[in-house]
Amino acid sequence: MRQKYTYILILFLTLGFVSACDDDDDVEIGYTATYPLSGDWTVTLSLETAPGQFEPLADHLELLIYNTSENVPTEVWIDDHGNIDDFKVKTPSDARARTFGGSSLTNENGDNQISIANGQVFLDAVRVNEILRDSIYFQLSFSDDTTPGTVYHVYGHRSTGFE
């Protein structure tokens, strides 16, 4: 009789574990209001030396763009985590048009101001490791640059997670 209860207990425990491991196939992953602007980007920082000629200053830099606490499509945080000039700015954006930028933006990580112009995300625009990735481009300038008026060009792709 005791063996019968042991088998019944094992059966109920097995059924309990199986039902707890239900598939989440019907769960839809949502995005923030700032997608497709938001994400982890791998970028190159360049300086235009002549019209159409760019000198890369640094590449494979990480840049993060993410939603503000309001989670609205009209503003994003751009954070370089010290990879370019240690800046973090909140800038106007239009997530539908995939554009962003603003002038004299307050740098949360310093005493200078940042200007971002012509910010744009292009969907499936580049092939990285045989995978189509989104591309990003914007112009960047700093109020405390040693050469006032210097405009840096930042371009790259959505990070793949690969080296």
Results as ranks from 00 to 15, higher is better:
residue 59 D to W: 09
residue 115 S to I: 05
residue 93 S to M: 04
residue 136 I to K: 07
residue 114 I to N: 05
residue 138 F to Y: 14
residue 148 P to H: 04
residue 53 Q to K: 11
residue 115 S to W: 04
residue 26 D to G: 03
residue 87 F to P: 09
residue 11 L to T: 13
residue 3 Q to R: 13
residue 135 S to F: 15
residue 5 Y to E: 13
residue 64 L to G: 05
residue 141 S to C: 03
residue 97 A to S: 05
residue 58 A to K: 15
residue 33 A to Y: 06
residue 74 T to N: 15
residue 115 S to V: 00
residue 88 K to C: 10
residue 29 I to H: 05
residue 84 I to R: 03
residue 113 Q to I: 08
residue 64 L to S: 12
residue 21 C to I: 11
residue 156 G to V: 00
residue 20 A to S: 10
residue 51 P to N: 12
residue 1 M to I: 10
residue 109 N to Y: 13
residue 41 W to F: 09
residue 141 S to I: 01
residue 72 V to F: 03
residue 42 T to E: 06
residue 1 M to H: 06
residue 50 A to S: 15
residue 44 T to R: 14
residue 9 L to N: 10
residue 98 R to N: 05
residue 45 L to Q: 02
residue 138 F to L: 12
residue 6 T to G: 05
residue 122 F to H: 05
residue 14 T to G: 15
residue 90 K to A: 13
residue 132 L to I: 06
residue 31 Y to R: 06
residue 78 I to M: 03
residue 117 A to W: 08
residue 131 I to D: 06
residue 118 N to A: 15
residue 4 K to R: 11
residue 138 F to R: 05
residue 129 N to Y: 09
residue 128 V to T: 07
residue 17 F to H: 02
residue 143 S to T: 07
residue 131 I to V: 14
residue 27 V to D: 15
residue 137 Y to T: 06
residue 151 V to W: 08
residue 20 A to R: 05
residue 97 A to C: 00
residue 115 S to A: 02
residue 64 L to A: 09
residue 56 P to D: 08
residue 114 I to V: 15
residue 28 E to C: 04
residue 40 D to K: 04
residue 152 Y to A: 02
residue 59 D to C: 00
residue 105 L to V: 11
residue 81 H to R: 12
residue 45 L to V: 11
residue 113 Q to G: 03
residue 123 L to Y: 11
residue 3 Q to F: 13
residue 45 L to K: 10
residue 97 A to H: 00
residue 83 N to K: 10
residue 101 G to A: 10
residue 2 R to G: 11
residue 76 V to F: 10
residue 87 F to R: 03
